[in-house]
Design a protein around this nucleic acid. Structure first.
Lengths: 139, 139
DNA sequence: TTTGTTTTGCAACTAGGTTGCAAATGCCTA
DNA sequence: TAGGCATTTGCAACCTAGTTGCAAAACAAA
């Protein structure tokens, strides 16, 4: 695990530092998306708020993680799959927030059906955020 | 117009005040959605920030306007159509943001096709925000 | 017009996020 | 592996968006 993290950072021309390693670890062990606040808490409060913001920004720029818009207007971050290239905007995938456990999932493999827009409208990007009950909480 | 605004407020058991009238007017003359900041500017800076926040909150509660989540994590507000009942969450309609002119449209009459989720997931709410070029900017 | 309720404006506060800069860390080459 | 340069960090200060409590002002109803 440690090796992979170091490689990932190197591949993206980033220095290997404590905070970056720790934050990547958190993402790898979380099976969903994380908010800035989650990271701040779970990292054991070792790192400055600013460092975390900057690290997340850097990771987004490099295409290591991506942001998820949510209905309640908070930002979530999630690891990108290996196939993602830097700068990829993750335009067309579905995000799912569980009302029960609060976990956010990136449903990369869900097909988005064509949406019929009124005449004159031309869509470039589609963001879909669904909420309900996830597979873990569904009894 | 003035009459209609007064009636609308009365129907919702709200006192008829300067700020409420002005804010409703702004929504009626805007053909798209407005952000809090837009309202603050366009109202001629007559009203306190807090008053605007509270007015918007009240309108949302009464079902006069509704909120739109956007990809860049800002909140937009738009007038509800007459058919909307108070408390209606506007769960399932598509919002469209024009990359050119920045206008946000509520596409009430666009059908949302069923989205096939992985086994175990059960959706309650779907938010779709699309962006691209709108009918005005499309040449 | 008077009275009671609703709404407003002010001040103070919180949370989330950004910027500039000096100190510390990491990287690379000799 | 030591030294020097580039990158990253932490601090302080700042900004915007939004909230709360409370007294004063505006509104509604009789």
């Amino acid at each position: 695990m440690q090796k992979r993290i170091a490689e990932l950072l190197k591949k993206n021309q980033l220095s290997i530092t404590e905070s970056r390693k720790k934050i990547l670890e958190l993402f790898q062990s979380a099976n969903g998306a994380l908010a800035h606040a989650d990271i701040e808490k779970q990292s054991g409060e070792h790192f400055d708020r600013v460092t975390i913001y900057r690290t997340l920004q850097t990771f987004v720029e490099k295409g290591i993680i991506h942001t998820i818009p949510t209905a309640d207007n908070s930002v979530l971050y999630a690891l990108c799959k290996d196939e993602c290239s830097a700068g990829h905007h993750h335009d067309n995938h579905v995000h799912f927030i569980c009302d029960d456990c609060g976990t956010t999932y990136c449903l990369d493999h869900v097909d988005i059906p064509a949406i019929q827009l009124p005449i004159g409208f031309k869509a470039k990007q589609t963001d879909i955020v669904m909420s309900g009950v996830c597979k873990e909480c569904n009894v």
